[in-house]
Design a protein around this nucleic acid. Structure first.
Length: 257
DNA sequence: CCGGATGTTCACCT
DNA sequence: GAGGTGAACATCCG
């Protein structure tokens, strides 16, 4: 999906609907409805939106009835009253084909909320269980991060991407954070010493804060070099390109150890 | 034409 | 159990 930063932008626009009453639910694509009987979505009609929450990449719309959970896959976008906080994702067109509107709400007071997802990798569900996810990466403390990594032989990057253990990081953010922290993504997750853990936590917090300001996961310093022949923005060394945790990984062999 | 892309889930390995 | 791989989803881009 969009990673945690983009979902946070989505949550902020979704917040505009707080106080409105759902007049109609549009779910033209049953496949997009997860772990929920599509017919059950009708119970949302007449419910009032009371708030929004986010855990990792899961957006939750609270109502005085069920909670509506929204997931965005890699190419999902949220539109509220036709306003999009993100016009265009890296690998998704800025177009809005009618068949890409996978789910939507119409409000009694006017206005609408739409989930547009060309690749159909996202989904919606009623009463999602946020505790299936690990702690949210935006607020995790140093001790929490230590616990996420402790005892694991998995590659550091794979562990940080495991949403059941730490919710929110995606492929771009994790590469950016590890590059800034000077840590090799292939290191065993449980093998960091206390000073490395502190460094990782510091760069995790700083990178998220900085990129939230700058406009999202694709605004990192490494982003422009995520290609074959890419070079480390800091030292010019050709970047290493590997598959770690099942995802294409770029790292600097010189200063990521 | 082909490979790969901000993700998740599942089956199937070791 | 812990990890890894590959497939599936559907579209765009280089």
């Amino acid at each position: 999906m969009p990673e945690v930063l983009e979902v946070e932008y989505f949550r902020r626009v979704a917040d505009r609907t707080v106080g409105r009453t759902i007049a109609r639910v549009r779910a033209p694509d049953e496949w997009f409805v997860k772990r929920t009987d599509p017919a059950a979505l009708g119970v949302l009609v007449g419910c009032r939106v009371t708030g929004t929450r986010r855990r990792g990449k899961l957006l939750m719309i609270d109502t005085d009835g069920p909670v509506l959970g929204l997931r965005f896959g890699m190419t999902g976008r949220l539109l509220v009253d036709g306003f999009a906080p993100i016009e265009r994702l890296e690998y998704a067109s800025a177009r809005y084909e009618p068949e890409w509107f996978r789910f939507g709400l119409d409000f009694a007071e006017g206005g609408r909320l739409d989930l547009v997802d060309p690749r159909r990798l996202g989904g919606v569900e009623l009463d999602p269980d946020p505790d299936r996810l690990g702690p949210d990466v935006m607020t995790i403390g140093a001790a929490g991060l230590r616990d996420v990594l402790a005892g694991s032989t998995a590659p550091l990057k794979a562990r940080l991407l495991d949403q059941d253990r730490l919710a929110g990081l995606g492929n771009l953010l994790v590469d950016e954070i590890l590059w800034r922290a000077g840590l090799d993504p292939a290191r065993p997750a449980g093998g960091l010493d206390p000073s490395e853990l502190a460094r990782l936590h510091r760069h995790l917090r700083a990178t998220l804060a900085r990129l939230l300001e700058k406009g999202g996961s694709n605004k990192g310093d490494l982003q422009g070099q995520r290609r074959r022949d890419g070079e480390c923005p800091r030292c010019g060394t050709p970047l290493e390109r590997r598959t770690i945790g099942g995802r294409t990984t770029f790292s600097c062999p010189t200063h990521q150890r």
